[in-house]
Nucleic acid binder design. Structure first.
Lengths: 153, 153
DNA sequence: GGTTGAGCTCGAGCGCGCTCTAACCCTTAG
DNA sequence: CTAAGGGTTAGAGCGCGCTCGAGCTCAACC
């Protein structure tokens, strides 16, 4: 059930249906303090390796509770942060910037302005990237058309 | 060969999102047969370093004519190929794939089908990337909205 | 209760794509 | 005629983001 919810959240994150519904994603992974997940479960759902999850923790991007025998036990907060982290990574945010961001988050509410700056900057980067990719896509499609239609490409 | 397609790719390069000098690119494609450009000129216009241009040549992505004293003298064909190469690189195509592609181009017209496959595959990659980035953008904008609009209760 | 397998830490290694250095060569301005 | 400044080569080095291995502990299943 919770596992399913996580799966759904991640499917939304990776492979969006027609409308992008950020609200829904947000709801799907909201607090749910009963359950916890093992490292390989989380890794599989986020499409990263357990090694990577340990690495992220090691470099201070998040802290993960342990079970009595010392194993990582990812709670809802950890998973939510990981969803954020992996999405930012996939969209090209460098790890150093993620470290800066989570440091601000952990520092408390007086850093909100700075976090906002960081997000605004990333938004601009994303828009720029999308524009560039669309241009590359147009160029690629044009070349494809030249190969398929034109007798002398 | 596919000079025309490369030229078209260059034409599509005319309106990059930020910074790239449109006039400069026009300079680069004007005077097709008469002129040649030095390495630092080309590097500046393509926004890469001369080191990178030598590197691309070294790994076989293109060949560049030399002037009588042995210096690189980029002609229109070389520049067109570099426009293509840099565009593909910026849109995430790995160098190994570029090597494969230019190898096919250099192998002659019987490799057209294979080149087309490669381009189709890249097109799909681009579409997927764009979709992902748009989702990340939506998520980022949502977070920004949460910070700016919602006065925290 | 022994074996299998997953997780743990620590630290080294790696693949990619440049990026830089060393040592030398040419062209051009003063 | 000299000196600056950019070009040439081969090859080493680097930053990023993992990725893997060694050697161990622990839990679970037959």
């Amino acid at each position: 059930m919770d596992d399913e919810a996580l799966t759904d959240a991640l499917r939304l994150a990776v492979d969006p249906p027609d409308g992008v519904n950020v609200e829904a994603l947000h709801d799907l992974i909201r607090d749910d303090q009963a359950t916890a997940w093992g490292i390989s479960t989380v890794a599989a759902h986020l499409q990263v390796s357990p090694h990577t999850l340990r690495y992220y923790e090691h470099i201070g991007l998040l802290t993960v509770p342990r079970d009595p025998s010392g194993r990582r036990s990812y709670d809802a907060a950890a998973v939510r942060r990981l969803v954020f982290l992996t999405r930012m990574r996939r969209s090209g945010m460098p790890i150093a910037e993620l470290q800066r961001y989570v440091h601000l988050v952990d520092a408390g509410p007086e850093t909100v302005a700075e976090r906002l700056d960081l997000l605004l900057e990333h938004r601009d980067t994303l828009r720029h990237q999308i524009a560039q990719l669309q241009l590359s896509l147009a160029a690629t499609e044009h070349k494809i058309a030249a190969y398929t239609e034109g007798p002398r490409p």
